[in-house]
């Protein structure tokens, strides 16, 4: 059991980080924290993918002619993670921009306060 835990250390960390990030994004009222949560969640999945590609004793996939595949780590997850990182940074930028816009209107980054103010505004229309 303990051996398995030690062996799967990367996966375990990744899923822990994922749960932390997921819940932060879901339930933390502060928008900045939510965005941090989003980033935690995404990097957790990336860590999961990147560690999945690793093979003990394998080298970075800078290949030489005539080399065997077993000398290197698996390059597929690496490529997926590269794509994913850029997607994550785009979402983060959009999220932050929306936060700034909201702050200009409601002077708060607490989503509950914002929702409350928005409701009051709606009721007084």
């Amino acid at each position: 059991m303990l051996e398995t835990i030690l062996q799967q250390r990367y996966y375990i960390t990744a899923v822990l980080l994922f749960s932390i990030g997921f819940v932060t994004l879901f339930l933390h009222p502060n928008l900045i924290k939510k965005i941090i949560g989003l980033n935690l969640m995404d990097t957790a999945v990336f860590l999961f993918l990147a560690s999945m590609g690793y093979i003990e004793g394998g080298a970075a996939p800078i290949v030489e002619e005539g080399a065997k595949a077993s000398q290197y780590i698996n390059p597929v997850p690496g490529g997926l993670v590269l794509t994913g990182i850029v997607v994550a940074v785009s979402t983060t930028a959009l999220f932050l921009a929306l936060t700034i816009r909201l702050y200009r209107q409601y002077h708060s980054v607490n989503l509950d306060v914002i929702l409350m103010l928005a409701w009051e505004g709606k009721a007084e229309d």
Binding site: Y10, I32, I35, I36, N39, T43, F46, A50, S51, G53, Y54, G58, A59, A60, I73, G78, V81, L82, I85, V86, V89, T92, A93, L96
Partner: peptide
């Protein structure tokens, strides 16, 4: 984990650009 591509990208994007935007 022998993924230098990812390491460079994460250092530039995660620690650099994202934090700056924050």
């Amino acid at each position: 984990l022998e993924s230098p591509d990812l390491a460079i990208t994460e250092a530039a994007v995660g620690a650099g650009v994202t934090s700056l935007l924050f």
